[in-house]
């Protein structure tokens, strides 16, 4: 089992995902989300399959993918780290954080670190605007992130052991939090 978001390319998984969603009205976005949630990106092979099943051209599917910042056509690193660039975070020091993130990781936005651990992405607001600067890693949001806190978060990601158990753990955590009770 691969953790969702990092499954290697597999046409039958892709077909299964497409079949699950294709009869929904306006199915393209839900399909693209499901593909990216599974593989971590939208592999080119899946585009042809989606086009065939929805009866549109590959160019149309590509056009939709390229319109939305969220969709990725390159394989990301093991973790995607999104730094908020929007105004409320700027007012709390996010410009310095952005500079620090790029310098310390040695990458620009949309790039992946040499060790394939982290892909850095910009994001425009995470709805955590009273307690910025804000950073999203996977589905978790972090508040009041300064350079020091950023380094600690990155360190956690880098030292995370690559065992099967650790690959499964983040998802367990998510489903536990699903129902606040």
């Amino acid at each position: 089992m691969h953790k969702p978001g990092s499954a290697p390319w597999n046409a039958s998984d892709a077909q299964h995902i497409i079949d699950q969603h294709k009869s929904r009205p306006g199915a393209l976005l839900p399909i693209l989300h499901a593909i990216q949630d599974h593989f971590g990106w939208i592999p080119d092979q899946s585009v042809a399959m989606i086009a065939t099943d929805l009866g549109v051209t590959r160019a149309e599917v590509h056009g939709v993918i390229s319109f939305y910042h969220h969709f990725r056509t390159k394989e990301p690193g093991r973790h995607v780290v999104e730094v908020c660039r929007a105004e409320a975070c700027q007012a709390q020091g996010s410009r310095a954080l952005e500079a620090h993130a790029r310098a310390s990781l040695g990458v620009d936005y949309h790039q992946t670190t040499a060790d394939q651990t982290i892909t850095l992405e910009p994001v425009y607001c995470l709805g955590n605007c009273s307690c910025g600067p804000s950073v999203r890693i996977g589905d978790e949001i972090h508040a009041r992130v300064d350079a020091k806190r950023f380094d600690a978060l990155v360190e956690e990601l880098r030292t995370e052991p690559l065992t099967l158990a650790s690959l499964a753990a983040p998802n367990l955590a998510v489903s536990e939090q699903e129902v606040p009770s």
């Binding site: 306006g26 976005l29 939305y68």
Partner: peptide
């Protein structure tokens, strides 16, 4: 519930409808 995909313009109501229909916003 339908998810957007990181495009501010999809908050504009007609772009939103295009997006819901599975198109560029």
């Amino acid at each position: 519930v339908r998810l957007g995909a990181g495009a501010y313009i999809c908050g504009e109501e007609t772009a939103l409808l295009e997006s819901l229909e599975g198109k560029r916003g």
